[in-house]
Write a protein that binds this DNA or RNA. Structure first.
Lengths: 365, 365
DNA sequence: AGTGTGCCCGTAAACGTTTCCAATCCGTGC
DNA sequence: GCACGGATTGGAAACGTTTACGGGCACACT
């Protein structure tokens, strides 16, 4: 039924060992025999059995990707970056998602054990201490936004603190004295860092911190909507809102519109992540730009570095990289002059990007 | 180094056959020995080698997913549905994307051969005749929106024709005499069907068809932007636009805003897909609702049906299912009275959905 | 006591590769 | 003519499971 390496060997008049060497170019094979073997393989439509291959070679050619969710622009773009880089290196992607609880993550990780050569894990909701023992020790792992103090794993971290600080500092530079923050989920690492950045910016500007200005949220648009409503009820009313991610900013924008509040005239607004829709909300959203796709690609790159034969078991310094989050000024913060100018240089790779119209948007504005 | 079934057998004082039977519950094992074996396995932290297992059992526990892209709300939601259903059935997902050209698809398919137990393929850009020979014959395949006339594969198809027809008919019911369409890519099956629906609606309403009203596009927001610009240059100017997908509608909306054209007063607009952002554009977008997540879940369901042991090689009638695309009226089409009402019953599963705020939106409007 | 019947369990043969090691071939230098 | 060495090739042992087959054993029945 299925054609094996033996069939190829028989047809080409050689042994299976030679077939293996010829097809993988893993040993010396005379040019002429190699051609004969390749021809036989093609004629028989031979495709090596990957199970057998990885049984003996202990490599599967797959990378595992564990994310809290697949939905939304952020993850969508992230996985796109991961996929592109993996494909370029000949790896397949084993994707698993919808995991927040530690137990789910553990189950997913167990399911992947032995099936993947490396792992990209993003688990902002679980603490380092509880995540660590679940991670496999026999394959390289890259942690996204879960910095481990002990440096036992590769980590790749967005500069949540710095980005948030910069965004809030920008809002404050407009003279706002009461800037509210729509916080991310409790115990979420990204959320905590962004909150820290918010507080730092306030402190640096000498603007007093007020507990009531820190509104709870959970990164969903819905919570952003409710958060903005809460802000509007406050007395005196804040004049600016920093949403800890763009999705909440969208929700807030929606609430402000429903309440008849003009943005940015009556309320300035800023977000975080710079997902592509930020360019075509009304008004376009000031936010912290994160090179999401590059983030995914870089994660795979780090994995690939650890996977070069020889770097395997040898303990080496675990890279800890940080990717910047930089302010991008659009109209929602009320910057005069932001309309005509180009807030940041446009990454050439973004131009003509599928499904995105932001270059057009920014030019047109 | 790695612990095998032999280690477990030795520790439990039984043979490997018994260990296998006990752990898989695949044969009679005395209760007491089973407990001993399970304990040994747990103590040793034994995890079966999946390569060896699938080498002998000829099953990998993985489903392949081949999509043209991973970006954008549509695919994001689709893969979410696929992932949920696969996870529920104990399958892992091997994901591959960014394939439009036939050669890329063929390469991706070859790479997956033997690694997956089943395949979900969405390839709107390649014709049935060229796609068919690339598909594996030894594992079940579900085709998304690629209906094959010969019924050689399971197919799951969105009613593009019917949905487009309904949307355009609705626009026409407002009395519009010149309705432009922003078309999808050439040779894209979905795009062609939606165009067909547009033409049918015109014919049924007795509104004359005009070639110049069919504007080329490619499903990206950018092409929607340009398409709307083109529409605005026409003389006499059309009074309604049907964008063949929501992304293009968003682009069009953006162009209309930049041109100072009020929607829906000066130009009615409708889209297709009902991705979640349609609820919080300004104005909210009238579109054709497709249960995207359910679409993905159903695809996995069909695969699972074909994968129950026994249904394997036996040739059976290949199911050909169609999922409806139904009109959902929001404000962009200019319906009076659409503001207060609830256009369609809200699917309970959508409530409180992560990253979506549309229930709030629709209630609040 | 002999025999049939079920339940448990062990032996060993697959599954399809890769790779170590030895054998063969062939030209070269002495 | 012969030893030698490098380039090719083949044989066979892994890799870690699942599973067909058959053996042992306890028990009930004749």
């Amino acid at each position: 039924m299925t054609v094996t390496i033996w069939d190829v060997a028989r047809r080409a008049g050689v042994s299976v060992a030679t077939v293996s060497r010829a097809l993988n170019r893993s040993g010396p094979v005379r040019e002429e025999t190699r051609r004969r073997i390749e021809e036989a393989a093609r004629e028989l439509n031979y495709v090596p059995n990957s199970a057998a291959r990885s049984l003996i070679s202990r490599r599967t050619g797959m990378l595992g990707v564990l994310l809290p969710d697949l939905f939304g622009e952020f993850f969508s773009e992230l996985i796109r970056g991961i996929d592109g880089a993996a494909q370029g290196r000949g790896y397949h992607l084993l994707v698993s998602s919808s995991h927040d609880a530690a137990s789910e993550i553990e189950a997913a990780l167990r399911g992947m054990r032995g099936r993947v050569d490396g792992l990209v894990v993003m688990a902002p909701m679980v603490e380092a201490a509880v995540l660590k023992p679940m991670l496999p020790r026999n394959v390289p792992v890259v942690l996204l936004n879960s910095p481990f103090a002990d440096g036992a794993f590769d980590t790749l971290t967005v500069d949540n603190y710095g980005g948030a600080r910069e965004v809030v500092a920008h809002l404050l530079s407009h003279g706002h004295q009461r800037v509210a923050i729509l916080k991310g989920p409790e115990r979420n690492h990204d959320a905590e860092e962004r909150l820290r950045g918010y507080r730092a910016a306030l402190a640096e500007a000498g603007v007093p911190w007020r507990e009531e200005l820190e509104i709870p949220g959970d990164f969903t648009g819905e919570s952003g909507y409710r958060g903005a409503e809460a802000v509007l009820r406050m007395e005196p009313r804040p004049t600016a809102i920093f949403a800890a991610n763009d999705a909440m900013a969208f929700g807030a924008l929606s609430a402000l519109r429903d309440a008849g509040i003009a943005v940015p005239e009556e309320m300035a607004l800023a977000g975080f992540d710079d997902v592509s829709s930020t360019r075509y909300t009304i008004p376009p959203l000031t936010t912290a730009h994160v090179a999401i796709r590059e983030l995914g690609a870089r994660a795979v790159g780090m994995l690939a570095d650890a996977l070069v034969p020889g770097a395997g078991a040898r303990p080496r310094p675990r890279p800890r990289e940080t990717v910047p989050a930089t302010l991008v000024v659009r109209r929602s913060c009320g910057c005069t002059g932001a309309e005509g100018g180009r807030p940041r240089p446009i990454d050439p790779s973004e131009r003509g990007e599928r499904g995105s119209i932001h270059t057009l948007q920014e030019d047109a504005v």
